[in-house]
């Protein structure tokens, strides 16, 4: 059944797109509150190292170890997000600079690699991994079965979170407040919405989601530790937020498009299709640049629905 190239490519697109979904979903929450966090890549690496550490150092059944590993990933990445939140929300540091600093601080030459060395990670694949499983018994459906229902638990979790986050943003009172804080913190403040608290919470939630994205790498895709193992996918997630107009449902489509591009090198190579390796490797990044260039001017961003207060620190007017 898996011989069909079409099915293989699509299944791989979803598998490799899953970390992008988590990371971009988290960034949507943060940006909807008006805080842009370029530290996604760094936070993913923190999540990856945290998850790998738990999976390596705790023995036990997968049903116990893996949830703990995922929670650890969320906490590690949220700790990174907390630094960004404190700098940008409380101290009102430039969000771009703080986010870049976070990625450098946590990235390949930073904390994540240091911790991995300290804990001696990456010597062998982790014992407990997220493997593909047929959760609902629908894996035998023609075509759709192997594409949609032969995935890891993390993928199913990402779908659940996309649905819940969409409902949260657009249908609940808290979502309304979140959008108001990102559009006009002055207005939100004037009707009693706690602007700073909302921004903290959503930046932290965004960090936790990025942590799960990191866990996708160290618990499933690789599944071990390698320095800088997220391969710049955090940057692609940032582009996806814009690509999806800050909406979870549209972002999901984009994530699988980029996931498909990322996976081409594995799927095509395995079939002996002759396309230069470098070209395939560069595809997702080239696409990212194209997306970012298209939406880089601020007028276009406004039309695409970027939160109006994105990137702007909020300070209450006082005399």
């Amino acid at each position: 059944m898996n011989d069909n190239l079409f099915i293989v490519v699509f299944a791989a697109a979803i598998y490799y797109g899953t970390p992008l979904v988590f990371a971009a979903l988290g960034e949507i929450l943060a940006e909807r509150s008006g805080v842009i966090n370029l530290g996604v890549e760094g936070m993913m690496l923190l999540g990856a190292v945290g998850a790998c550490w738990v999976a390596t150092s705790i023995d036990g059944p997968a049903g116990v170890v893996l949830p703990i590993a995922v929670v650890a990933a969320m906490l590690f990445a949220a700790a990174g997000a907390l630094i960004h939140a404190f700098l940008t929300i409380t101290l009102r540091v430039n969000q771009i600079i703080s986010g870049l600093a976070l990625t450098i601080f946590a990235g390949v030459a930073g904390v994540s690699s240091y911790l991995a060395g300290l804990w001696d990670l990456g010597q062998a694949p982790v014992a407990n991994q997220f493997g593909k499983m047929d959760l609902l018994g629908w894996g035998d459906l023609p075509v759709l079965g192997p594409i949609l229902f032969n995935q890891t638990l993390l993928t199913y979790l990402s779908w659940l979170l996309v649905v819940l986050t969409s409902i949260y943003i657009f249908r609940t009172r808290w979502g309304l407040q979140l959008r108001a804080v990102g559009e006009s913190p002055q207005t939100a403040d004037s009707v009693g919405v706690a602007v700073q608290r909302s921004r903290y919470l959503h930046v932290l939630a965004g960090g936790a989601f990025a942590g799960i994205a990191g866990a996708c790498f160290s618990l499933s895709i690789l599944p071990t530790w390698q320095n800088g193992m997220t391969l710049g996918q955090g940057w692609i997630a940032l582009a996806l937020v814009i690509f999806g107009f800050w909406r979870p449902d549209l972002m999901l489509v984009g994530a699988y498009l980029f996931g498909g591009l990322s996976s081409l090198r594995y799927t095509l190579q395995a079939r002996g299709v002759e396309i230069p390796q470098l070209f395939l490797d560069s595809l997702p990044y080239v696409m990212t640049i194209v997306v970012l260039v298209v939406v880089s001017n601020s007028a276009a961003r406004r039309q695409l629905g970027a939160p109006a207060a994105l990137g702007k620190p909020y300070e209450r007017e006082e005399r």
Binding site: I167, R171, T172, R173, L176, Q177, R179, A180, E183, S184, Q186, T187, A188, S190, V191, G192, V193, G305, A308
Partner: peptide, 30 residues
């Protein structure tokens, strides 16, 4: 009512009015 309106242009009239209040809800949905 401020001279410079405190309204969010991209929101509907209803969303602007209920923002910050406890709006009528079913379960968690407004």
């Amino acid at each position: 009512v401020h001279q410079h309106f405190r309204l969010i242009p991209t929101f509907t009239v209803t969303e602007n009015i209920i923002l910050g209040t406890q709006p009528p809800s079913r379960r968690f949905l407004i």
